[in-house]
């Protein structure tokens, strides 16, 4: 139920970003993605929907307030609770809100987040609307508390990780990475294959630690690159780097689960 709601909200917030992107079409792309459904044609990454500015659309579409479902007092659009001191019930989920707004940040997606600040915001929301505080509640807003709490969980867990944050922003900006895409970028794939083989052959903790150091550097560099790409609104580059990060994070997970003497066969379901 909750996941259904968050998906709808994410979809409602799928509004493209800036017109500046269209000028980067001629840029030679490193990654050629071929849609697996149509293998004969290769698709250039720059064939993305031309993005538009997010905030202009949002400001025109969204009212500043909405009536409380119980007492009809107009409450700020994003308010979690009714502002009427007599009422104070938890509000229903506001449609068209992205995860940044859920956590009280600007609706403009930004890759650079202050993790400490994010955590504080998340805790504050959970404190306010944690379903347990409403378990004995007769107002009937326990369900809304659950939905709000679940949305906040989803928003926080998505935005706190560099990979899910990158993928989420790409989705918001209309450039998601599809399951059916296949990657044909020899340089990256060769590096991944080599890293995976080294990990497969590793015998001792020390060897794995060394591979971990190399991989940590890769992750750090890729995250820095993503920050730059998103800042410069270079979606094509951001998508390329998000794909790279996916590979490095997978290696990180394999390293985390590594136990001497246990071969790694399939590393996820």
């Amino acid at each position: 139920m909750a996941s259904l709601i968050t998906t709808t909200r994410a979809k409602a917030a799928q509004i493209p970003f800036s017109t500046a992107m269209t000028s980067t079409v001629s840029r030679s792309s490193r990654v050629i993605l071929s849609t697996a459904a149509n293998n004969t044609s290769t698709r250039n990454l720059s064939n993305l929907t031309p993005p538009r500015r997010l905030n202009t659309i949002m400001n025109t579409k969204r009212p500043e307030t909405r009536p409380c479902w119980k007492c009809s007092t107009p409450v700020p659009y994003l308010a979690l609770q009714c502002t009427n001191p007599e009422c104070k019930v938890v509000q229903t989920l506001a449609p068209g809100v992205n995860y940044f707004e859920t956590l009280g940040l600007s609706p403009e997606p930004s890759y650079d987040v202050d993790l400490k600040d994010l955590r504080l915001r998340f805790f504050k929301i959970q404190q306010l609307i944690h379903p347990d505080s409403y378990s004995q509640n007769t107002n009937g807003d326990q369900v809304y508390a659950q939905q709000q709490s679940s949305l906040a969980n989803k928003a926080y867990s998505t935005l706190k990780e560099p990979l899910s944050r990158a993928n989420y922003i790409l989705e918001l900006l209309g450039a998601p990475i599809h399951e059916t895409e296949s990657l044909n970028e020899p340089e990256l794939l060769m590096e991944v294959m080599e890293a995976r083989e080294l990990l497969e052959e590793a015998q001792t903790e020390d060897e794995v630690q060394e591979l971990k150091n190399v991989n940590d550097t890769r992750i750090k560099d890729t995250v820095e690159g993503l920050s730059k790409a998103f800042k410069g609104q270079d979606l094509e580059q951001a998508k390329t780097l998000a794909i790279e990060l996916q590979y490095w994070i997978r290696i990180q997970n394999v390293i985390r689960d590594w136990v001497a003497g246990h071969p790694i066969v399939a590393d996820h379901v």
Binding site: L33, E181, M193, R196
Partner: peptide, 13 residues
């Protein structure tokens, strides 16, 4: 042939 699945991070040779 070396291919990958960008959405999940699989690699196949």
């Amino acid at each position: 042939g070396l291919v990958g699945a960008p959405a999940c991070g699989d690699v196949m040779k």
